[in-house]
Design a protein around this nucleic acid. Sequence first.
DNA 1: GTAAGGTCGTCAACGTGGTTGTCCAAATCG
DNA 2: CGATTTGGACAACCACGTTGACGACCTTAC
Lengths: 158, 158
Amino acid sequence: MATTEPERPGYLLPLLLLAGFRTLIDDLHAELARQGHPELRPLHGFVLQAVGADGTTATELGQHLGISKQAAGKTVDRLVALGYLERANDPRDARRKLVRMTPRGLDGLRRSAVVFDRLRQRWAATLGPDRVAAMEDDLRAVTPANPLRLDVPGWFGG
Amino acid sequence: MATTEPERPGYLLPLLLLAGFRTLIDDLHAELARQGHPELRPLHGFVLQAVGADGTTATELGQHLGISKQAAGKTVDRLVALGYLERANDPRDARRKLVRMTPRGLDGLRRSAVVFDRLRQRWAATLGPDRVAAMEDDLRAVTPANPLRLDVPGWFGG
DNA sequence: GTAAGGTCGTCAACGTGGTTGTCCAAATCG
DNA sequence: CGATTTGGACAACCACGTTGACGACCTTAC
């Protein structure tokens, strides 16, 4: 690198990152819709991921996702109504309501993982596997290893 | 590349892209808040960018941003209330209401550009200028050159 | 054992952003 | 000219986020 770069404007970088994220998520949900999960929203996938196979509670979920327990509870309500989650009582603590995946929820989660892997392979086929890995490594290097902030709607607009 | 990659899970890629975007935007707005623009939300910056120095109308803005004209009008209302935009009548078409930047809006937009450039330089200093450029090129290659979809809150949570 | 304090879940109110549907005024077309 | 299209605004609605308040329940200390 002898001379300086041809001065790329800085504002393009966030736009490209957003576009990349959005492309991936849109492709995922287009495929999920084809596979029997048309009601899943981008947000929901991440919530299912956060609930995991072991289940949690609304408060834990909120902490994990970086949102209030009330907001987490509302989203759980929605996913219960859609048939992806269910609530159960904790036998050891009558205050807690365990949030668990239903079979349908597990199905969606597994399919998401498969599709994400396939999408990453598609990027690798286009760019080369090393470039994708480099992108991941680079992003990890400039990103404060945050524990997943999922308050996107409120953050962006709020 | 003799063998296959060590199987990185595909779901990390979107998370890293989102984290990168979010880091950039958060840093930008932290700096903007320091420079006298604490009320600007992430969304607002993109809207100002879309309005540009020449101004537009709410309908055009909505088309440009990928949202309805009503949603665009609402956001314009907010930015007018915050002092970043102003409306004026179009002398050639009494239906149209021109949306223009105020001096405050221009100030915010210019500062955003400066901060974005500086943030990109910071990434370049950490990763190397070629890596940042490569990331941009790669993202452009896997992204359908979309004309800026700004319906993020509704898209994500919808 | 009982009183004090902390935690979990829920209800309510509110703000912001998105949508669709309706409607009027103004421009444009035939 | 009348008919159609277009821009803007209003209203109703949904999704997601917030904070505040409040029971119900666990835990701890006395």
